[in-house]
Amino acid sequence: MISIQNISKSFNKDSVTALRNINIEVERGELFGLIGPDGAGKTTLFRILATLLLADEGRAEIGGRDVVRDYKAIRRTIGYMPGRFALYQDLSIWENLQFYASVFGTTVAENYERIKPIYSQIEPFKDRRAGQLSGGMKQKLALSCALVHKPDILLLDEPTTGVDPVSRKEFWDILQLLRGQGLTIIVSTPYMDEARLCDRIALLQKGQILEQNTPDGIVSGHSEPLFSVRGPNMFALLQAVRLWPGTYSCFAFGDSHHAYLRPGAKPADLKDFLHQKGFENVAVEAIQPDIEDIFMHLLPA
């Protein structure tokens, strides 16, 4: 459905590389996640797909149409939600929706069924100005507006950034529902926990794809043992673990530190090392890595 081949893009006369040789294939009806921190190149990739930006190299197709040549046709088949809230703040919910429907030559009534699951949640406030909505409601409105012309493909650039956890959960429930209706969705997020909710993901860092697979595939593809380290004085502990020669990498992870060890290094030796350094009651346990661990592990040290 979406085919991205060898896309590269740089800015400021090639001094900043935003994307380097990106290859992604997204199947029809798939929920595909672009996972990566700020500045990874997610927005640039979305803009190229949304026909707003021309790539320096490579080509991309959406539904068999070239994003450069057939941009007019593509604009009718995609629903794009930019990373920044981009609706008219001084128009009401209803006016925004109606406006985007008429811009695509259709009406809200005609496509009510498609937007109903989302729009019904904000419909009680339909006369409220978009600028006065909460973050979660804004995102629901933006999604409604992106869906009002019945697109086949949704491009959602960080739709849950700056949204509270409950609204984030609701938003992902809606995405699952839309996927069930046959839409192809590409969504980007900096939140690793949301990666689990996608069919397939690509880990993006500094314009390059580190890995591309199903979430389970990515986790099972990395069998390096991972250990959680927990003890008093967490910050000094982090420094100490990193000092140990057998540590490959260690990073703070909520209330514990996650450490990858070099081949042959034993966790018991780490515990001894930490004891020598004066850390008492340190717990070192083997744990199952999650996508965030793998992402951190894949980052160039």
Binding site: A50, T51, L52, K72, R75, R76, I78, Y80, P82, R84, F85, A86, L87, Y88, Q89, Y100, V103, F104, G105, C145
Partner: peptide, 13 residues
């Protein structure tokens, strides 16, 4: 400036 142009640009307008 407020980004509505970007949304506008992906429409057939």
């Amino acid at each position: 400036e407020i980004g509505t142009m970007e949304q506008m640009n992906v429409t057939p307008v």
